[in-house]
Nucleic acid binder design. Structure first.
Lengths: 201, 201
DNA sequence: ACCTGAACACCGTTCAAGT
DNA sequence: ACCTGAACACCGTTCAAGT
């Protein structure tokens, strides 16, 4: 019987991946340094070598991971905004276990950079207050995902599956939620428009 | 020297009040059964007599407390909706320490009842899909409070004051946030309107 | 009925030590 | 450089016991 040497060395990425899996399948309160070590086939203390600030650093990294979305600028600012709103929603929905962190922790690192890029895209398109527009769009994504995940009852039974998460498919399920999201997004984008009609007459 | 007998007996209300104070001033992660006991001048184990399911029950109670807002029905459904949106926002802003719970935990008890009341108010006003309207309004409140609290950097320094919380008053502070909120709320309410103009012609 | 004390299993983090 | 083992202070929760 061959002696087991850790096949793949520990890394920040592998730690975050494993942490997301635990949080999504068992809930944030069960995400523990020791359990995380077990999942990675390593003593919990080894994690500190890759995340020096310990659990706080882990929480920050999780929030950043699920919140730092990048989307290529499109033809119109509306399409650009639509793209990263959809991407943000998808990322948040995929990881309900860290949603509380994502909605609550101020953006840092790559998340903060992504925010700046988005603001710049809207600024280049000539929007009068691009920062405010980005805030409004972020608020929309945050709010709709929060309500959707709340409604799914995820927080009540976070121990069912190992997969990312599947909204209750029958009756008021994912398709209706998607339609609601797109509909509200359209309305918001229309509201953000520097009302061309008014200026033209 | 008179012997100190606990002056006021422990109660569910006093426990929740103290817990909110700790969460808002020090952060949710520092809200501990033992610390809570200290704040209440009692051994931690005494709390279990009033909250049998322990810390889980406490978390539920906190989410419910900050999320169960009641507002009297007004003349129009718009004014009713405006009233409880404002009340919800105020309650959430007052307690940033439990915002993560409020946005994440499915509504129970008085919170669920408040939701039903709101749906009924919109239903009585003849809105085609009152449940969806309530969801949209809730999402709006959740999202705007989330970005506002995030922006305030509260999660980065939850140890500064004992008072509920004061948004950074200078430069993009509370007044601008209020105006943004009202403006967006107007737009949303307009969008929810069963477009009278279209039906009339 | 309401609270305490001791106990148990578990947690985050440190530090010296191993390789 | 990367990981382990032992240790420390702290945590949630139980249970029998006190009043």
């Amino acid at each position: 019987m061959p002696a087991k040497r850790p096949p793949v060395p520990l890394s920040r990425e592998r730690i975050i991946e494993a942490a997301l899996h635990i949080a999504d399948s068992q809930g944030l309160r069960r995400l523990t340094m020791r359990r995380l070590g077990d999942a990675l086939q390593v003593e919990a203390m080894a994690i500190y070598h890759h995340l020096p600030r310990g659990k706080d650093a882990l929480m920050d990294a999780l929030a950043e991971h699920v919140t730092a979305v990048h989307a290529e600028p499109a033809d119109s600012w509306q399409e650009s905004a639509r793209a990263w709103c959809r991407a943000s929603r998808a990322a948040l929905r995929e990881h309900p276990g860290v949603l509380a962190l994502a909605l609550t922790k101020p953006p840092k690192g790559r998340a903060a950079i992504a925010l700046m890029e988005q603001t710049e895209q809207l600024s280049d398109a000539g929007l009068p207050d691009p920062a405010q527009a980005v805030r409004a769009l972020r608020a929309y994504v945050f709010g709709s995902v929060a309500v959707e995940v709340q409604r799914s009852g995820w927080a009540d039974s976070p121990a069912d599956g190992a997969e990312p998460w599947r909204p209750p498919s029958a009756g008021g399920g994912s398709a209706a939620a998607d339609a609601d999201f797109e509909h509200g997004l359209d309305a918001l984008l229309a509201g953000l428009n520097p009302r061309r009609t008014e200026a033209e007459r």
